[in-house]
């Protein structure tokens, strides 16, 4: 821990401090390989955007396909079965015009997979009166279109 930029006027602690602090904070979640694939798949449309201009039409459908792929690989791993705790993040309501992203599509897909009881009808983006997989695709498509223009949701 002595890299020349880290000196204070106190003596540097020995390595045991870092080792013990890391041991105390060692609770790291296991990341399933499916989640790795899902994140990389969700990133793909944005990377395509950087690689190729004029991608918008193909990119939209590519994004939907990526979102579908994401949902397909993530759903089995994030399935909440009997006796397990509910997901940490509730889907909430969708407000028209509110920015959405692929994670919202994933979250909606996961909520539907659990039975959909907690899903607000506000997520009926397809307007057919029910919230179903078509709405997952609609959210994914909207996310890709919105993401074509820079946005700062988490900045």
């Amino acid at each position: 821990m002595t890299d020349g930029r880290t000196q204070t006027d106190l003596p540097e602690p020995n390595e045991a401090l870092a080792e013990d602090l890391r041991a105390l904070l060692a609770d790291r979640p296991f990341v399933p390989e499916e989640v790795d694939r899902a994140i990389i798949a969700a990133a793909e449309p944005h990377l395509t955007c950087g690689r190729r201009r004029g991608w918008r039409v193909a990119g939209v459908w590519g994004g939907v396909a990526a979102a579908a792929a994401v949902a397909a690989v993530v759903l089995p791993t994030l399935w909440v079965g009997p006796g397990q705790s509910e997901p940490a993040v509730a889907l909430g309501d969708y407000a028209p015009g509110e920015p959405v992203d692929v994670v919202d599509a994933l979250r909606l897909a996961r909520a539907l997979e659990r039975g959909g009881e907690s899903v607000s009808i506000t997520w009926d983006l397809s307007g057919d009166g029910v919230v179903d997989r078509a709405d997952v695709d609609a959210v994914a498509m909207r996310a890709v279109v919105l993401n074509d223009e820079p946005e700062e949701r988490h900045g």
């Binding site: 904070l25 609770d27 790291r28 979640p29 990341v31 989640v35 899902a38 994140i39 969700a42 990133a43 944005h46 990377l47 994030l78 705790s85 997901p87 940490a88 993040v89 992203d101 692929v102 994670v103 994933l106 993401n147 820079p150 946005e151 988490h154």
Partner: peptide, 27 residues
């Protein structure tokens, strides 16, 4: 994932944060 776990104290939330962090980056 470890840092997100430290902040949220929840495995599922940590995985969500993991996803959103890298999507933020690529965006």
């Amino acid at each position: 994932a470890s840092l997100a776990m430290r902040f949220t104290g929840d495995r599922e939330a940590a995985l969500d944060v993991l996803q959103e962090t890298f999507l933020y980056l690529v965006r």
